[in-house]
Write a protein that binds this DNA or RNA. Structure first.
Length: 443
RNA sequence: GCGAUCGUAGCUCAGUUGGUUAGAGCGCCGGUUUGUGGUACCGGAGGUCGGGGGUUCGAGACCCCUCGGUCGCCCCA
């Protein structure tokens, strides 16, 4: 008999489980919590769109569109594409659903994205992003709010120490075009000295020469004109408002005048939160203002800003996988106790305590299991307890064991939880007091 | 798409210039302990040496192809 070939996972896809899943989940939950603090509404978007949505918004000549999309024809003969990013789909939804009526619109979403790329650490063919967008606000306040949101997210994830916010402006359409012409002229003059890649870029995407990693390009890129000289007074004012706002929010940033976007619809603010801990995949969260995008999909001129962040990359930066311990492990002994265990479990769960029955195998083994999963307490139900109507309640941290009825167990668990909350509240308070004290010293 | 590097148990890795039945630690299962965890000791299961082809009396080691991971480039979160 021929041996069956075990199927492999598709290249660049992941089966996220165990500690990785904890990390992933923690990133998403933190995002969902922080996003509410800023009043962003959640949205769910289709995973595929008509190919034209991406082709038109990103531009036919971009790498993403020309060689990285998962495009296919469906049974009806339509060309569809698995989304390689969120913004185009959201813009499409904005137009098709008449969301203009909800402007200003603050949206957030997260989910899988697909790009046919060479996989590496922190780079997958199916990967996952968090996304936040503000549509319909042309003022710099939107850029600031989005950046504060991003900054707080990274702080709450505990990874802001290794990450810096790099900020730049691309100006308005006029500024940008003037600067672009000046750059082309500059690079044209040094064309012969540019790397082969950058000579290509000169045709397709001249701004990209600025952040080239090629050694021979650096002197030419570094001596290229900054945008500052070409900014209109409005654009200058806009950027000033962004930086003032960031300072007011306590968001630290550094100017990177070589930070650019390849796509034409980007205006004004461009930013990246960058780390040096993930090798070539150092960008952890990035975005900017894309006032020209909705227009490129045939809609009215609509201002918009947004960012996206790689969930896997954020997860990899987390110091420890946040453990979610089981609260109660229920260990029945014998058939009648097993039935009793079911009613005890549902009562505990109904009271909002996590509980799991460890019902099969040797008792000793089950106790070890309870300990291993980090259960706070074990509940033992056996012959004696069936007779008395109570259970053995064993605190697995202290080893202390008492006989209680289920109501008393619930009370005890509430006390335990309450005292933990108090402890963390006290810790927060201490931090706050220290911050206040430092502020006082600073004056 | 280009360049480099790696691929031996579930995990981390050993495996001498090609030579008998491929090893260790951790983990897993069982026992010492049939109503009580973290320790200790003893035992056990688990391997298409990524896959295919070739060289050879003999290949986990050498050659070719292929798949996958990783690092860089491109691009990007």
């Amino acid at each position: 008999m021929a041996k069956i070939q075990t199927p492999q996972a598709v290249r660049g896809t992941q089966d996220i489980f165990g500690e990785d899943q904890e990390r992933f989940q923690h990133v998403v939950e933190t995002f969902e919590r922080v996003r509410r603090l800023y009043g962003f509404k959640g949205v769910q978007m289709p995973v595929f769109e008509p190919t034209a949505v991406f082709a038109r918004s990103l531009g036919e000549t971009t790498d993403v569109v020309s060689k990285e999309m998962y495009s296919f024809e469906d049974r009806g003969g339509d060309s569809l594409t698995l989304r390689p990013e969120f913004t185009a789909g959201i813009s499409r939804a904005y137009l098709t659903n008449g969301w203009q009526q909800h402007v200003p619109l603050k949206l957030s979403t997260h989910g899988p994205l697909f790009r046919y790329e060479r996989p590496q650490k922190g780079r997958y063919r199916q990967f996952h992003q968090l996304d936040a967008e503000i549509i319909g606000v042309s003022e710099a306040a939107a850029d600031v709010e989005l950046l504060c949101f991003a900054d707080q997210l990274l702080k709450e994830l505990g990874i802001s120490d290794g990450v810096t916010l790099q900020l730049n402006t691309l100006g308005d359409a006029e500024s940008r075009d003037a600067w672009r012409d000046a750059l082309v002229e500059h690079f044209q003059a040094h064309r012969a000295d540019l790397s082969k890649d950058s000579q290509d870029r000169l045709e397709r995407n001249p701004l990209r020469i600025l952040d080239s990693k090629e050694r021979q390009d650096r002197p030419i890129a570094d001596s290229a004109p900054d945008i500052d000289a070409y900014l209109s007074t409005e654009a200058k004012e806009f950027f000033a408002q962004v930086t003032e706002g960031l300072d007011a929010c306590g968001v630290s940033w550094t100017r990177n005048s070589r930070l650019v976007r390849g796509l034409d619809y980007y205006r004004h603010t461009a930013f990246e939160f960058v780390t040096d801990r993930l090798g070539a995949q150092g960008t952890v969260l990035a975005g900017g203002r894309y006032d020209g995008l909705i227009e490129s999909l045939g809609g009215p001129v609509t201002p918009a800003v947004g960012w996206a962040a790689g969930i896997e990359r954020l997860g990899m930066l987390l110091a420890d996988a946040p453990a979610v311990p089981l609260e109660l492990a229920i260990l029945p002994m014998g058939d009648t106790a097993s039935v009793k265990a079911l009613s005890v479990a549902s009562e505990l769960r109904g009271s909002q305590f996590s509980a799991e029955i460890f019902g099969s195998g040797k008792f000793k083994k089950r106790m070890a299991r309870a300990n291993q999963v980090g259960a706070l307490a074990a509940i033992i139900i056996g012959e004696d307890e069936m007779a008395s109507g109570k259970v053995q309640f064993k605190n697995l941290a202290t080893g202390e064991q008492t006989e209680l009825d289920v109501t008393a167990v619930i009370e005890k668990m509430w006390d335990l939880r309450f005292s933990e909350d108090l402890d963390s509240f006290d810790a927060d308070l201490t931090d706050l007091e220290q911050d206040v004290a430092q502020l006082g010293e600073g004056d």
